[in-house]
Amino acid sequence: MRVGLFVTCLVDLMRPSVGFAAIELLEAAGCAVYVPPTQTCCGQPGYNSGDRAAARALAEKVLAEFEDCEYLVAPSGSCAGMIKTHYPELFDDAPALRARVERLAARVHELTDFLANVARLARVPGGFRGRITYHDSCSGLRELGVKGQPRALLARMPGLELVEMGDCEQCCGFGGTFSVKFGEISGAIAERKCRAIEASGADAVVLGDLGCMLNIEGRLRRRGNETTKVLHVAEVLAGKSGR
């Protein structure tokens, strides 16, 4: 299976290790991983800020980069959701392009969804000891139905215990540019998420999106919590969560 990895701009800049963990997992599932070198961003910042033209230009770029792959996989529900559920509508006035985009969209998966449901990863390579709680990121959950997939994969790691936090489906307050435009509100929403995480008694909160990750980690540390780890699900599954 030739799988194109959409690294995402935040993984590229902030947490390259998550990208390498994703490659490892995909290879463990028997995929030939292709990483288009020219990839940058899915266009979501423009799309959500009302700049449709910019979003569309980037969508065309992603289409050109990944059209030849059997699948496009991203370690992010947000970016995968953008490509899968929002790209087609950007091409309402260009039926030929829209058809190509729809063909690509049909082959787009969030990483854990792909590993659990498409590639059917036989053995989870990583090991983890401790209690974790899982934060469901909004786009992954509500656009792509990512809910059971990461939990099913994590459940196959013997030393790992999953405890659910209260309101695990509640937004962490990130919201892309919202987090900067409305920093105070965003931080207050994150504060509630952090309290739910702490109340769960978990050693680590695990999630599938860099935006939520930076938001939750940033708020935990600001409020003086130096111990609760914030980990991407790919790092945990690949056994790269020592950071």
Partner: peptide, 24 residues
């Protein structure tokens, strides 16, 4: 340039190199 973020939370620093350079 994004002071709104750090009003109420820290910004975790990046690892230091980009994925694209490490991958290459």
């Amino acid at each position: 340039f994004a002071g709104g973020w750090t009003v109420s939370r820290d910004f975790p620093a990046p690892e230091g190199k980009t994925f694209r350079e490490l991958y290459r």
